[in-house]
């Protein structure tokens, strides 16, 4: 149970906007860790910095002991770090099948790709029914399933999920969170960004609370759930 992913005093910018102001966190192998916080707290920016879509200007991001601070996203993905982006990032004019194939872009063996697609269909049978449909014509829940399935195509060691519950009906939110739990039971480490703090804290082992680009609180998920400030701000309990 070593540290799989570690951020050390990371600062990131969008142009002149200082988005992350010294984030330090770590995710151990086999854990579910969640980042909670309100809009603009820097949750998505943290994930984007980890996968290299934006690069940290200061600080260090390391994955499995290797420094990945300045590595391009397509190489980070190949190291075993899956990122399901905010808004799902489905290719609207590619079919479900093609979307999944894109997820396995770096695999050259068609048989291996087929096997992985089958595994995704086992996880989300609904996708199999939609196999030849364009990604853009799927419902929100199906798109989220596709996004997660696509993120699993390279069999990542850690899967980073950005707001998987966004815009979904409660029954689908349950399904997505059950699946995340299932994936974790099978050994995939999860880094979960959520606005739905209650759901996130109920499946996570540990959590970090972000505010305006910095971490203000970290603890075991169960303890965070009991924390007065967290209850008041993010769980809506007075």
């Amino acid at each position: 149970m070593g540290k799989l992913l570690e951020l050390n005093n990371v600062h990131s910018y969008y142009g002149h906007i200082h988005a992350l102001k010294g984030i330090s966190l770590h995710v151990d192998e086999g854990e579910i860790v969640t980042l909670i916080g309100s809009n603009g707290a820097g949750k998505s920016s943290t994930l984007r910095t980890i996968s290299g879509i934006i690069h940290a200007r200061e600080g260090k991001v390391s994955f499995d002991g290797k420094d990945i601070t300045h590595i391009e996203p397509h190489n980070v993905v190949n190291m075993g770090l899956g990122h399901v982006p905010e808004g799902r990032g489905i290719f609207p004019k590619l079919t479900v099948q093609e979307n999944l194939e894109m997820g396995a872009y770096t695999i050259n063996d068609p048989k291996a790709i087929k096997e992985r697609i089958e595994l995704v269909f086992e996880l989300f049978p609904r996708l199999k029914e939609r196999i030849l449909q364009f990604g853009g014509t799927l419902s929100g829940g199906e798109q989220q399933m596709l996004a997660i399935g696509r993120g699993l195509m390279l069999n990542p060691r850690i899967l980073m999920l950005d707001e998987p519950s966004m815009g979904l009906a409660p029954v689908l939110v349950d399904l997505i969170f059950d699946t995340i739990k299932k994936l974790n039971d099978k050994g995939t480490t999860i880094l979960l960004v959520e606005q739905n703090a209650l759901m996130a804290l109920s499946i996570a082992h540990r959590g970090y609370v972000l505010q305006t680009g910095g971490i203000v609180l970290t603890d075991d998920a169960a303890k965070l759930k009991q924390n007065e400030m967290v209850q008041k701000t993010y769980l809506g309990i007075e």
Binding site: P73, P85, K93, L94
Partner: peptide
């Protein structure tokens, strides 16, 4: 072809494409 699909993927969503391991 795979390259063609990657071209379409990059056209549709560049950041997402890079997260698929596509060298944009």
């Amino acid at each position: 072809t795979k390259v063609g699909k990657a071209i379409r993927a990059v056209a549709q969503d560049r950041p997402s494409a890079s997260l698929m391991g596509i060298n944009v």
